[in-house]
Design a protein around this nucleic acid. Sequence first.
DNA 1: CGCCACCTTCCGTTGAACGGGAAGTCCAGC
DNA 2: GCTGGACTTCCCGTTCAACGGAAGGTGGCG
Lengths: 247, 247
Amino acid sequence: MANSSSGDSVVDRIVRLISAFPQDATDLRLSELAERSGLPLTTTHRLVGQLARHGLLETAPGGLVRPGLRLWELVNRASPALALRQAAMPFMEDIQQVLNQNVNLAVLDGWEALFVERLSRRGSVANRAQVAGRMAIHISSAGLALMAHQDKALQQEYLRQFADPYGKLAADDVRTLLADTSRQGFAQLKGVVDPDTCGIAVPVLNRRHRAVASLGVVVPLREMRLQALVPALQTAARGIARGLAES
Amino acid sequence: MANSSSGDSVVDRIVRLISAFPQDATDLRLSELAERSGLPLTTTHRLVGQLARHGLLETAPGGLVRPGLRLWELVNRASPALALRQAAMPFMEDIQQVLNQNVNLAVLDGWEALFVERLSRRGSVANRAQVAGRMAIHISSAGLALMAHQDKALQQEYLRQFADPYGKLAADDVRTLLADTSRQGFAQLKGVVDPDTCGIAVPVLNRRHRAVASLGVVVPLREMRLQALVPALQTAARGIARGLAES
DNA sequence: CGCCACCTTCCGTTGAACGGGAAGTCCAGC
DNA sequence: GCTGGACTTCCCGTTCAACGGAAGGTGGCG
């Protein structure tokens, strides 16, 4: 727009603004928001006002700003993550009930696993996978399950880019992990996120045997019984896939 | 911006654009999106391109547009609905398990109940309350539970505005419903949404005894046993309130 | 009271956004 | 294979929405 010294468009600014909110949905002061988003205070003030008029943000007295209900509503009314979530929820609940463990559902976005839903067992070990949280592919069982069942071309590209910062040896390790995952039909990572837990994940496959999502659990190491976990997850994953195909 | 014949800002346009997506998260053709949002095709094309570059929308070959994962992620990372959902989920699951019924969680927005979360019993009667769906206050137990525990001033204003289109008699009926709800501590609506079901909802109260949310179930009429339902809901509601106060 | 930090409002400048038009492309169906 | 419909991609003159510095409130604290 006019006079934009930073050279980005209104859309860019709006994205910067709503991206500036941290994980925990606490209120932000206007000046803090301006700083986080890197926008001039005046601009921030004006944009916040505009967005607030539509309910995308909410302002509280004292210059406090927080994400608005309307934004939540719009997004949660129509989103690609919803159909998946809808199809998966019953099965996730089953898993949670039968196994009494933390259950999570993730999709691949870029080179990361994006967690779409999560049911946590009360009193359970910490599950770092927050809803709408991300984890790198190579450190999450969900990521491995997702990447292990993608086009070969995509996997190559991933490994190539991975080798750049981490080195060839590390990339070879990941290649092995992916191969194991693909062969076994499930991914397993012990003590990577948390020393005393283990992540297990299976892919949710579409008709062309590509992973569109992953279903996983995080269990304390000593409680782990693969023989019971994997079949249950795989059965549920097939159920989810069927549900997706129908819609 | 310049030349905006419609006279609305970029923010308005973006809101119009993302609001244009219907409930079911199906892809929209570009031209269809332009028509729904009332924007010129060229403008729609440009804005969609910009939004897609940030991942807020996704474009598929053939001019198809759908909401993007990134948008879902941003919103679900920080939103006022999330803290509530987080606090409520364990209790909702308990209710669902123990009572084996549809459970829903709503907040008040305008003169409607906005459903924030919903767990549905498989094989259960239809529950019309979709996630991110809305229902008018006077036809939903959730709405009544919410409105019955608000400031007197707000209730008056609601009834005043309600009387305008619906007439004074109808408003008096609602006033009675609200009074009953307030006195009993729970709202009950038989066969309004669906002839064979009954909605029961209790408020989740903050320290000042104002409803910040409502917790409800939808049960088949013949299975209904108030004696069992209401105490369970109220207990859960108190648990949720405690969880909210802590955070 | 005076300082400070922050929110809010004002206002002249300006260039980014707008959108109509038209040509190019791609696909489906008759 | 041709036609129609829809998406895509240029171009370009117009214009006013957005910009942001500066000045003016506001509230809290020592």
